[in-house]
Simulated scan of single mutants.
Amino acid sequence: MPQDDPHHHDPRQLAPATQRNREPILAVLREVLPAQGQVLEVASGSGEHAVHFAAAFPGLVFQPSDPDPAALASIDAWTRDSGLSNLRPAIRLDATTPRWLVTEADAILCINMIHISPWAATEGLIRHAAELLPTGGPLYLYGPYRQSDVPLVPSNAVFDDSLRRRNPKWGLRELEAVAELARDGGFGEPEVTAMPANNLSVVFRKR
């Protein structure tokens, strides 16, 4: 069906936050990602991040994923639109499941998932990342966190409250709890970078 058909449904989703955070995230990823290999993105959402990063790192192959069928359609539509050859078709992946369809990854990205999912998703992410990543391979996390030694800013407190009202299993996680889970899973200490809008970039490297 032609794109200009008024009845044509464009599956591409737009995430306004992506426009604001993709360049700050990219600046961190330039210091974190390997020069070549495969990057698995967990919870790719609209797919806009995957397209932006694949364009910036032509030496890497990006594998986007998401558990939501609408997100998968959006990712694949953005991928087709980009024309990038280093961006694979999206795969359905739920972080909580015992088996993933991915067998290898040199780096793993997970942006804005941990606070909008049950704790079991974080447990699954770290468990699978430990199985997939090589020694020194990075697990990159982005989003808002609670930190025991840092007062929660009002905007994050309001956001946390709204998340918990939507789903009691959601909410901002304690960075220390995530770091402890990663440590127990075979990762080193977190490399934390403060980001705009009171978010953090958190990198764990496989020991």
Rank of each mutant, 00 (worst) to 15 (best):
C110L: 04
V150S: 01
W78P: 14
M113R: 01
P144G: 02
L29K: 00
N156Y: 02
A120I: 05
P154R: 04
D161Q: 15
D149Y: 04
R92Q: 13
S65L: 09
A54L: 06
P58E: 13
A129G: 15
E48A: 14
Y140K: 01
Y142T: 06
S85W: 00
S46L: 09
V61T: 15
G59H: 09
R164D: 02
W119Y: 01
M195T: 08
N167F: 06
T97N: 04
Q63L: 14
E123F: 01
V158G: 04
K169H: 12
R20N: 10
E191A: 14
L101G: 14
A35L: 14
R22H: 13
G137Q: 07
A15L: 06
R183W: 15
H7C: 00
H52A: 13
V150D: 09
M195R: 04
F187W: 12
W100V: 12
Y140Q: 03
E191C: 05
P64I: 11
L175G: 02
A54W: 09
E180F: 03
A54Y: 10
M113E: 08
G37E: 12
Q36D: 11
A157G: 07
N198A: 12
A50F: 03
L87V: 14
L132G: 06
Y142E: 00
A50R: 07
T96R: 15
Q3T: 12
V178K: 03
R22Q: 04
L141A: 02
A107F: 00
P168Q: 03
G59L: 08
P89L: 05
A107V: 04
L93V: 09
D160A: 15
N198Q: 05
P11R: 11
R80Y: 10
H8S: 06
D81V: 09
T135R: 15
V202Y: 04
N86H: 15
L26F: 00
L26H: 06
A121L: 07
Y140T: 07
H52Y: 05
L29W: 01
A43C: 13
G83S: 10
D76W: 15
E104D: 13
A95D: 11
D106E: 11
V102I: 05
A73Y: 11
P89C: 11
V202N: 00
G171Q: 00
V61D: 10
Q63K: 05
R12W: 09
W78A: 10
P11D: 13
D66N: 07
L125I: 09
A130R: 08
W119Q: 01
D4K: 08
L172H: 07
A90R: 02
R30W: 03
R92W: 03
N156F: 10
L84F: 10
P58Y: 13
C110H: 03
W119M: 01
H7D: 12
T135I: 14
R166E: 11
F53P: 00
N156A: 05
L26K: 02
L125G: 02
N21T: 06
S155P: 12
R183T: 15
T96Y: 01
N167V: 07
M113C: 12
E189T: 15
A15E: 10
P58G: 13
S46C: 07
V61K: 04
D106W: 01
A179R: 04
G136R: 11
G83M: 08
I25N: 11
A182S: 13
E176G: 07
Q147G: 01
D106C: 01
D106A: 09
F57H: 10
P144S: 00
P24Y: 06
G137R: 07
V150G: 00
Y142N: 03
A182H: 08
T135N: 10
A27V: 00
T103C: 08
T18S: 13
E189L: 15
R166V: 12
